[in-house]
């Protein structure tokens, strides 16, 4: 019996880590851009969905998942750059309402464009050869692919931490988050820093979109599903806080991973339980500092 429990714990733990990884990849860009630029991009998860579809097309044309993972995120980021240059830039100083409205319109356009190109049905993408199998750890049968998702997320987050914490570019980004006027006065182009941060966030979400495809498929509602989850991460994590997003994504993964093992009927409610729990203890979010 205890052996059975141990295998359940392992399975739940792996699910938790996989879910947290994806939640963090998707939401981190949203929360950082919101924190630094005060820009709330409702279309953020639309780009995540777009990456999934583009990845699907690349993989089904070339037969290579790896090529999809390599190429789909940069293509998505290029589209995001176009949106930033043409649209978002005009509204950085305009306040939340026009930003929200504009990005709602863009989310509409992206949703309908993907339906036009790829149809209304859910699409399935097979995991790459070698990652389609299962391994048995402590009596639990685990999909190898989930382990891969965790590893690739850790690698990306590690790289990002190195980039932000240990390079000159990272130093400018960190400074721009705290004292933008000073960074501007020192001669750095603030708008270029903002664009860089925006694109890195989109890149992470786009990777999540491709990586997600073999697990849950690609479907027209995935942008909305991810948007709700990401808003929960941002609100519960606190104003633009990356550590907050990290912790909340972890919490979401924990309740989702273990909850779906023990209380699978109620799994859809868990994210809201986390949100309500966090807001009860800390009304401004875990790492919230004012900002009402």
């Amino acid at each position: 019996m205890s052996h059975h429990l141990a295998s359940l714990m392992v399975a739940g733990g792996l699910d938790a880590l996989t879910y947290s990884s994806l939640a963090f990849l998707i939401a981190s860009g949203l929360t950082v851009v919101f924190g630094m630029l005060g820009f709330l991009n409702v279309a953020h998860t639309s780009f995540y969905m777009l990456a999934g579809y583009i990845g699907f097309s690349i993989a089904s044309r070339t037969g290579s998942f790896w090529l999809a993972l390599l190429l789909a995120p940069p293509v998505t980021v290029a589209l995001g750059l176009a949106a930033e240059r043409l649209l978002f830039r005009r509204l950085y100083a305009a306040g939340h309402t026009p930003q929200l409205l504009l990005t709602i319109g863009l989310a509409y356009v992206i949703a309908e464009t993907t339906k036009m190109i790829w149809g209304d049905d859910s699409l399935a993408l097979a995991p790459p050869t070698g990652l389609g199998g299962h391994v048995v750890i402590l009596g639990a049968t685990l999909p190898v692919y989930h382990l891969f998702v965790i590893v690739i997320t850790m690698a990306l987050v590690g790289l990002l931490a190195l980039l932000i914490g240990w390079t000159r570019l990272g130093m400018v980004v960190r400074a721009a988050a705290i004292h933008p006027q000073m960074v501007d006065a020192l001669g750095f182009k603030l708008s270029a820093v903002h664009t860089f941060v925006f694109l890195v966030g989109l890149y992470l979400a786009a990777v999540a979109g491709v990586v997600m495809a073999p697990m849950l498929g690609i479907y027209p509602g995935m942008a909305d599903d991810a948007l709700v989850q990401s808003f929960i991460v941002v609100v519960a994590g606190g104003l633009g806080s990356l550590p907050g997003a990290f912790v909340v994504a972890g919490l979401l993964g924990l309740v989702q991973g273990f909850g779906s093992v023990f209380l699978s009927d109620y799994a859809l409610y868990f994210p809201f339980v986390v949100l309500a729990g966090v807001l009860l203890v800390r009304p401004l979010g875990l790492f919230g500092r004012g900002g009402a």
């Binding site: 919101f34 005060g38 709330l40 939340h96 929200l100 948007l227 709700v228 808003f231 929960i232 941002v234 609100v235 104003l239 859809l268 409610y269 809201f272 949100l275 807001l279 009304p283 900002g291 009402a292």
Partner: peptide, 28 residues
């Protein structure tokens, strides 16, 4: 009681989460 304490984008995000919660109830 929860939503109105927040302003700006936070209000919008919180109301979206609350709306999604009620949708989930209707769905489940």
């Amino acid at each position: 009681h929860v939503c109105v304490r927040r302003t700006g984008a936070y209000f919008s995000m919180t109301t979206l989460a609350v709306g999604a919660f009620l949708y989930t109830i209707a769905f489940k």
